[in-house]
Nucleic acid binder design. Structure first.
Length: 564
RNA sequence: UGGGGCGUCGCCAAGCGGUAAGGCACAGGGUUUUGAUCCCUGCAUGCGGAGGUUCGAAUCCUCCCGCCCCAGCCA
């Protein structure tokens, strides 16, 4: 087969781990984690992180990768997201074994460490409201001011924190802060908030047990350490937070200190990979849910017909670095084409039918022709296709007259019907508006599995029996946005302005070969000369099969056509 | 203008002082009952710029330029 033999990716993170292994760091262990917040569905950018973290665990001896939900903000999170995320990670082909965790598993310990910080004079309860806190923080170029509550006694802090925990205070009335340095050039170190008060939310894991919730910057390093993580991989925007990550672990009694390493997040052209904006697309109804086949979510890609392997290949190919990037869709598309080219059985489907009557073929005759399911893989077997007097071809495969570059059917010309005979167009029938409604053709009975005598027929087109074909609905998906960077265009009020109105075109009159009646939901086929299609889980309102277009075939004819 | 990062082909990306991998895209050609696949071939005297060190620099040093991130009681 082709050379999609996966090359084990190498990247700067694996190099660091190699060196750590050589130096005997972490007792030689390699333990990563994938830490999603359950506040939305996973997208292709998360796939990059999943492949990185689980891929490293897979490739190093004894390597492990935990799945941990970062569920410290119950306001935005829920169990549906937890379930969807688990399904997506599993579908991508990764296994967390018995290591499914929640940051909320550690709420008790997190609380105790906070008490320890207070006891050591390294955290304090602050009564400043959100607005004042911001004002005291200073700006990027000016240092902040110390909170008037910064030097409370340990006893008072202990008492206040305990009362925060027992819900004596309202939301926003007090927070627990680390006592670090209000003049730090790194804003994250200007006494960051560790705990805030949140009443009236029911946490999907802990219910109403808590009314104080720890912040990410405090929770993450401790969760990592508690799980014995060796390498904590995250995206570049957390680079500034690393000093805080280290500060937390250096100031509590814990004997594990994972190494945080940052890599750049994925940017994919013609789409968005911002959870906030994807949420907006869903909630405002611009798409039909998180798993809409146009969405760059894992669930969307799955429904679209992408395979887990193709997404893993994609993640291997784009690599992992710290450089800002803007990956072309073409790379993702090439990955799924490669996979499906070797693995998807072939079939014939006519998307825009044009009737062809073979005048020299008996009306009641049905020939069962044999077609191979894959041109290069005999093991995929063959199927039979009924051939009859009336068939459909695609309207795009006929032109009354055309330049000799056009290798399909023209008036008076010949063309090969894929897996069948060579036919010749004898006459063209039009309606009152001059629109072509039918072709009358003849066939050469000597051309089944043989080249015609004394002449060359250069074109091959696909077809489906008009009497045996099955009506189907075809959904033609295209890019969701018509701008390469919808999120980055400042000349427009919102990324929504770049939504592609033609991202979904539905064809309701398509006709597919009858063998497709045996297909199951999710089965993928190459409709020859058209592209790769995936059978939708549900039929259409009329009870017809629905096929979703995964991706078109490469089309060099389209290029030639455009140029002329 | 404070701090933290990043700049190698159109895009992604190797390279780690010994003379610019690979993939995608693109352009030619061959095979083909899919204008698909497959197979050849081509595609950076050049690594953001300028100096310097060195026999030798994308790799080391200096300065400059450009881009990204940070002022949530979000993650």
């Amino acid at each position: 087969m082709s050379k999609n033999a996966s090359v084990t990716p190498t990247n700067f993170i694996r190099q660091i781990i190699d060196e750590d292994q050589k130096a005997g760091k972490h007792q030689g262990r390699v333990h990563t984690r994938f830490p999603p917040e359950p506040n939305g569905y996973l997208h292709i950018g998360h796939a990059k992180s999943i492949c990185l973290n689980f891929g490293i665990a897979r490739d190093y001896p004894g390597g492990l990768c935990n799945l941990r939900f970062d569920d410290t903000n119950p306001h935005k999170e829920n169990q549906d997201y937890v379930n969807a995320i688990k399904e997506d990670v599993r579908w991508l082909g990764f296994d967390w074994g018995d290591r499914l965790f929640y940051a909320s598993d550690y709420f008790d310990k997190l609380h105790d460490f906070a008490v320890e910080l207070i006891r050591n004079g390294k955290a304090y309860v602050c009564d400043l409201n959100a607005e004042d806190t911001r004002a005291y923080r200073g700006t990027l170029t000016e240092p902040g001011k110390e909170s008037p509550y910064r030097n409370r006694s340990v006893e008072e802090n202990l008492d206040l924190f305990s009362r925060m925990k027992s819900c004596e205070f309202a939301d926003g009335e007090r927070v627990l802060r680390a006592k670090i340095d209000m003049a730090s050039p790194n804003i994250n170190m200007r006494d960051p908030t560790l705990y805030r008060i949140r009443h009236g939310v029911i946490h999907h894991q802990t219910g109403e047990e808590w009314c104080i919730y720890p912040m990410y910057d405090y929770t993450h390093p401790i969760s990592d350490a508690l799980e014995g993580i060796t390498h904590s991989l995250c995206t570049l925007e957390f680079e500034d937070h690393r000093p805080l990550y280290d500060w937390v672990l250096d100031n509590i009694s814990i004997d594990c200190h994972p190494q945080q390493i940052e890599f750049s997040r994925l940017n994919l052209q013609y789409t968005i990979v911002s959870k906030r904006k994807l949420t907006q697309l869903v909630s405002e109804g611009h798409v039909n849910g998180w798993d809409d086949p146009r969405m760059p979510t894992i669930a969307g890609l799955r429904r679209r017909g992408y395979t887990p392997g193709s997404i893993r290949t994609f993640c291997d190919r784009i690599g992992v670095t710290k450089a800002d990037n803007s990956v072309e869709m073409g790379i993702l598309e090439a990955c799924i084409r490669e996979d499906l080219d070797s693995n998807a059985p072939r079939a014939m489907a006519v998307l825009n039918p044009l009737k062809v009557v073979l005048e020299d073929y008996p009306a009641d005759k049905v020939e069962e022709l044999t077609a191979s399911n894959h041109p290069k893989d005999e093991a995929m077997g063959s199927r039979s296709i009924p051939f009859t007097r009336e068939i459909y071809i695609d309207r795009a495969d006929f032109l009354e007259q055309a330049s000799n570059k056009f290798k399909r059917l023209v008036a008076g010309g010949e063309v090969r019907l894929r897996n069948a005979y060579v036919i010749k167009c004898e006459s063209v029938i039009k309606d009152d508006n001059g629109e072509i409604i039918e072709l009358r053709c003849s066939h050469d009975s000597a051309t089944l599995g043989a080249n015609p005598e004394g002449r060359k027929v250069k074109g091959v087109i696909h077809w489906v029996s008009a009497t045996h074909g099955i009506k189907a609905e075809i959904r033609l998906y295209d890019r969701l946005f018509n701008h390469h960077n919808p999120d980055g265009d400042k000349s427009v009020e919102s990324f929504l302005a770049h939504l592609n109105p033609e991202s979904l075109r539905t064809l309701t009159e398509a006709v597919v070969e009858p063998s497709l009646l045996n297909a199951s939901a999710g089965d993928r086929f190459q409709f020859e000369r058209e592209g790769y299609y995936c059978l939708n889980a549900e039929p259409s309102e009329q009870g017809r099969l629905i096929f979703n277009r995964v991706v078109t075939l490469r089309d060099s004819w389209a290029k030639i056509e455009q140029q002329s």
